[in-house]
Design a protein around this nucleic acid. Sequence first.
DNA 1: GCCAATTCCGGACATCATGTCCAGTATGAT
DNA 2: ATCATACTGGACATGATGTCCGGAATTGGC
Lengths: 201, 201
Amino acid sequence: MKIERADDTGTIDRRVARTRALLQDAIIALIPERGYAAITVDDICRKANVGRSTFYTHYTDKDALRSATLEAHLRSLSRERLSKDERTGSRLFEFSLPMFEHAQAFRSLHHALLASSGDTIHDQMRERIQRSVRAELGGKRIGETGVSAEFAVQFISGAFLAVLGWWLSTDTKLSPAQVDELFQKMAGQGIGARQAPIDEG
Amino acid sequence: MKIERADDTGTIDRRVARTRALLQDAIIALIPERGYAAITVDDICRKANVGRSTFYTHYTDKDALRSATLEAHLRSLSRERLSKDERTGSRLFEFSLPMFEHAQAFRSLHHALLASSGDTIHDQMRERIQRSVRAELGGKRIGETGVSAEFAVQFISGAFLAVLGWWLSTDTKLSPAQVDELFQKMAGQGIGARQAPIDEG
DNA sequence: GCCAATTCCGGACATCATGTCCAGTATGAT
DNA sequence: ATCATACTGGACATGATGTCCGGAATTGGC
């Protein structure tokens, strides 16, 4: 009933470290089994062999546990990167490769945290967008085949949804036509990497 | 207790059309108020002036209502597009502009459906990625200022997250380095649209 | 305008998850 | 060893879910 520090590394008492680790492992193991939404606090506690009342002395919520778990792992990822002190500047985006590597190493974790349960608003929206993109991209014929074509689909639809959400949530003065122009430019150029540039017209 | 058709337009009885419209309007109005997760079926029914038991004769779930609502609006969007029969081929992605326009017209609706409540796994992840992208993009100096720089941030991080999720959920043979290369290519070219192309190195 | 069919109502009900609390026990820190 | 602190397990109130029913209201067809 004290338990002040939020992080796990600096925690003094072994019991709290143990309990939190058990809970975090439990929720990670549970997410792929039945999906995050369907998990109850009781499920987590039974899986972790931790009393339910104990849970609430550490986390206020199921969400709080998830959040803490994700944070802990992302922090450990940053720590790794810093220790490897790779020479910067060789590529445009430094963050992506370590992320992909970490994702593979902790595949089940990332899969659990990112995998769309399919029952969120975003998932439903994404389905629709992906269909559109796939149709248009298939029609225009991209150079590569199979997997990399689908890569482009994912890339473009993800970008579009992010942009759309951002455009709506901020009070931008951009008109629909203006945002679309920006989007067309970036998306078109991105595709251009795997195809002859689109002729102006 | 009959109620067979899923769509609203073809529904015979005025009462069911009325009820469903009321419920759909209610949930749309409610989402921006307190966020989707916090809404209860009872909230929706009181807002819509519909008996709670009636709700369950139309939708099994809160999720089912949301899903149906979103579908209905996306369908209406497709209908619009078809009626406008715009000449195709002028731009690479046809779907985006109508989407942006529709989003502006039904701003509150789209905002409600897309706006991240900030409390999902994805939101938390996105925060982190955006920070990385913003840092790297800021460092590398993109030509434009302010709003369009943030546009690029949203575009890139959205694309990355989508790709990461896809890569994890499908049994791809791609190695981390390979996915990253694809990502770097598309992202780099996308950025290139607003900057001199990156010299090969 | 009438009638049969269908929908809506609203209240009752069982079930389940949540979050709080407490007294008793076990464990770690020193 | 002993004290502080964390864990336990059970009880409790609360609130949401989904189902079911009889009666009232509205609709579409005639």
